[in-house]
C-alpha cells in the first residue's frame, strides 16, 4: 500500500530541519524512481514542479543574514540560500513523491487503497467521479468560452464578463443535467452499490516506509 507511505514520507519531509536530512529522503525518492520505472514524461512534470516551487520560494533568498550578493531587488544572504533550498527541498520531495506514485500506479489504485484504509466511501466516490469527469467538464467549459469569444465582438468588457458569469452558471446547469443522465445509466445497470476497488499486496511501499522511519530514528 502506497498511501500510508506517501502520508508518512510527506509528513516527515515537511518537518525536517536540515538539508542533510532532506538528502536522505532524496535518496529514498531516487530508489522509488528505480523501482517504479515511471514513463519519461513524468520527469517533465517533475521539472515543471521544481521550477514552479523554486519561483514560489524565491523571496526566501533575501532572508536577513550574511550578505553574499547584492542584486537590484535586494541582498541575497547565506541564510537565505539555505532557507530557500530547505523550503524547496521540502516542497519538491513531498509533492514529487505523490506525482510519481499516482502517475506510475494510476489513480484507480490510489482510490482502491483509500477504500482499504477505510476512508469514507463518499469521499472515495466523489474523487473517482471528479477524476473521471474533470476533463470533460474542462473541455465543455472551453468549448463554451470559445463559442462566446467567437461572437463576443463589439461588446464592452463589463458586458463580456457578465456573459462569462452567465456561461459559468450554464456550465453548472449542464453538469447537473449530465448528472441526471449518469444516474439513469447507473439505474439501468441495476445500481445498488458501487463495486469495491480491489488492492493487491505489495512489499515495496512497506519496505520503503520502514526505510524512511528508520532513517528518521537514526
Amino acid at each position: 500500500m502506497y498511501l500510508p507511505f506517501l502520508l508518512i514520507y510527506a509528513l516527515l519531509v515537511v518537518t525536517r530541519k536540515s538539508l542533510i536530512e532532506l538528502a536522505y529522503f532524496g535518496v529514498v525518492l531516487g530508489c522509488l524512481i528505480l523501482m517504479l520505472k515511471p514513463k519519461k514524461s513524468i520527469f517533465k512534470h517533475l521539472g515543471f514542479l521544481l521550477g514552479f516551487e523554486g519561483f514560489l520560494f524565491i523571496l526566501a533568498l533575501f532572508n536577513p543574514g550574511e550578505v553574499i550578493l547584492v542584486t537590484p531587488i535586494g541582498a541575497i544572504t547565506k541564510e537565505g540560500i539555505y532557507s530557500f533550498f530547505l523550503l524547496l527541498g521540502r516542497a519538491f520531495l513531498s509533492s514529487s513523491v505523490v506525482v510519481l506514485v499516482s502517475n506510475s500506479l494510476g489513480f484507480s489504485k490510489i482510490l482502491a487503497e483509500m477504500e482499504t484504509l477505510k476512508f469514507p466511501r463518499i469521499l472515495v466516490l466523489t474523487l473517482a467521479f471528479t477524476y473521471r469527469y474533470l476533463d470533460l467538464f474542462k473541455d465543455e467549459a472551453l468549448r463554451m468560452k470559445r463559442a462566446l469569444d467567437s461572437r463576443a465582438f463589439g461588446i464592452g468588457k463589463l458586458e463580456y464578463y457578465k456573459k462569462l458569469g452567465a456561461l459559468i452558471g450554464e456550465i453548472f446547469a449542464r453538469a447537473y443535467l449530465r448528472n441526471e443522465k449518469i444516474y439513469m445509466s447507473m439505474l439501468s445497470r441495476g445500481f445498488g452499490e458501487f463495486p469495491k476497488f480491489e488492492t493487491k499486496k505489495d512489499i515495496i511501499p512497506i519496505a520503503l516506509t520502514m526505510i524512511v522511519l528508520l532513517g528518521v530514528l537514526l
Partner: peptide
C-alpha cells in the same frame, strides 16, 4: 460519457454484473 462514469474500463464494465 453519460454511460461511462468509472475511472477505468474494467470498473465500468464490472458495475452492472457486480450489481
Amino acid at each position: 460519457n453519460d454511460q461511462l462514469f468509472s475511472p477505468t474500463v474494467f470498473e465500468d464494465v464490472a458495475f452492472g454484473p457486480y450489481n
